[in-house]
Design a protein around this nucleic acid. Sequence first.
RNA 1: GCGGCUGUAGCUCAGUUGGUUAGAGUACUGGAUUGUGAUUCCAGGUGUCGUGGGUUCGAGUCCCAUCAGCCGCCCCA
Length: 417
Amino acid sequence: MAQSVKGMRDLFGAELRWFQHIEETARRVFGRHGYGEIRTPILEELDVFKRSVGESSDIVNKEMYEFTDKGGRQVVMRPENTAGVVRAAIQHKLLASSDPVLLYYIGQQFRYERMQTGRYRQFWQIGAESFGVASPESEAESLLMLHSFLKELGLKQMVFSINSVGTPESRPAFYEAFRAFFAERQDRFCSDCHRRIESNPLRVLDCKNESCQAALEGHPVITDYLDEASAKHHARLKALLTELAIPFEENPRLVRGLDYYTRTAFELLSSDLGAQSALLGGGRYDGLVKQLGGPEVPAFGWAIGLDRLAMVLQQVRGEAPHVAPALLIPLGERAATEAFKLARGLWDVGVAVQLETRGGALKKAMATANRTGVQTVLILGDGELDGGTITARHMATGEQESWPLSELAARLKPAAS
RNA sequence: GCGGCUGUAGCUCAGUUGGUUAGAGUACUGGAUUGUGAUUCCAGGUGUCGUGGGUUCGAGUCCCAUCAGCCGCCCCA
């Protein structure tokens, strides 16, 4: 049997309904915050990611779907969407003025990784990027939007982890202090940590090895090494979040895998996801636009994993909200003809109804209605036609009533909307 | 990329030290009921045993390879 490529999955049914509900909510919430949608190509030139995500990152190192196209171009199926959005904003001169530019995207991303629950090779991200504003206020605005988005989806108990990773100028001082601390007791750390201290020093801090955790006692904290402006920025953001009642906790050990972050970095984990617990992440990336050949424009953004979000919502809220349309069952040829006209009249005024076109036994149609979760069945036979009515049966209670055909649309509309 | 586990009906799973015609529940199809759906009763498909090799008189069972999924690591959404 033919099957989907490893790590690629088909979305349909109940799971897709969560996706759709999430996307609708995102468009509504982001739209009212003044964000506009952007859609960028799945394929980008290799250089776009090398220069943004960073050549040292695992994503660029080993996780990219990368190939040479028929024209000899080195292209990549995007592993994330921020770099593409920045590239597009530069290319189309969206950042030419000093006006803020607010964009969001919804799209598939690709990473060549080992499969696991909640980790796919094609996965979906929803993200928002804010260009042109360096203030902590712009970060609070973006986070408030994110908070509203998740709240409207029915997610409770979210606590953002936030940190400040400083600037490219201030960070070396911390790394120096931390590496010195590490060197003093390096024999107490595991081999993984010896690798991490070179590639991504903060990762040493969340090593699961007990002896490493013990060795970390009294380690230097990154927020103690911030320059004055970054420290002030960080304090102001925390004050705003507190003022807005957005729950957060400071996590001086938080570090992100992409190279481009400056100052604020944050993420949200979920215990409903198993080992792949990261639900969303983001932060400030003031240097990225210039790095990709654009003007010097500050930026802030985040991305949330749609697959993982759908999984969490399925866990905490069950099935996605869904109302099956009423089912119209005609009995006999005369009624079948009339049912078409009736259904068309309903469709034309925006009422949802499904038409049973199989003919045959009513029993069979009823069984189908029961299986598919139809709440209201409409039975149209000769008796009803002669009387100008239709029989409405409420599946949950088994109650039946006779509705005048003239009132059908009005009676159905509240139930279907 | 590293380590471990799993794969039998649409779904959830049994299946003896290798033994002859593959099982249960549920779902599905038809009928008891030709204008009434979760219950009841009766009758029934329920299958390349993930795939391909090998050992054997004989493989769902043992061996090898391969594919897919799951768990942990790395990392991330």
